[in-house]
């Protein structure tokens, strides 16, 4: 493995996370959504796994061990936001604030439940794909061993 790869790849995770955050924030008004953001993060993690190997990648970033938890949390968030309106007698997936009502804005980010749904999708996709990547990295290492 070349030195450049060893040095550069692990440091790509930060920028990748930034890109993912930007994709989510801008997602509702520009290209991209929670899914693509999740895949971006997962790809950055995959690069770590490829360069460092599963063992070192996980030791340097213990969050990776909890990828399944992340995925389940994302799924629960998506389901909760989807079926939360049912409790108020609205059809599922009614988003708040309603059409035409004012929205709280933080910079480019507009706080609506649809964005929260996107965050849930992001968590689910990132967690699920990192888990897949982890399993496959282990598979490759078993063979090497």
């Amino acid at each position: 493995m070349s030195v450049i790869l060893e040095v550069v790849c692990p440091r790509l995770l930060g920028p990748a996370a930034m890109v993912a955050a930007a994709i989510i924030v801008k997602g509702y008004s520009d290209v991209g959504d929670g899914f693509s953001a999740g895949v971006v993060v997962a790809l950055a993690v995959a690069l770590r796994y490829v360069t460092l190997g599963a063992e070192r990648a996980e030791r340097s970033l213990p969050v990776l061990r909890h990828a399944p938890v992340l995925a389940v949390a994302g799924l629960l968030l998506v389901l909760a936001i989807g079926f939360f309106p049912v409790a108020f007698g609205e059809p599922p997936l009614t988003h708040f604030p309603r059409a035409g009502e004012p929205v709280v804005e933080i910079g480019a980010l507009e706080l609506t439940t649809a964005v929260a749904l996107d965050v849930g999708i992001f968590l689910l996709v990132a967690g699920a794909l990192v888990e897949t990547i982890h399993q496959i990295a282990r598979l490759v290492e078993e063979r090497r061993a």
């Binding site: 991209g32 609506t112 649809a114 749904l117 996107d118």
Partner: peptide, 25 residues
């Protein structure tokens, strides 16, 4: 009206949100 600019994303998250929900499931 749904507070979104990217129509595709709005369709995915809002108009046809159930599809997306099943998809991620």
């Amino acid at each position: 009206e749904a507070h979104g600019g990217d129509v595709v994303t709005v369709i995915l998250a809002d108009f046809r949100g159930l599809d997306t929900m099943v998809e991620v499931t």
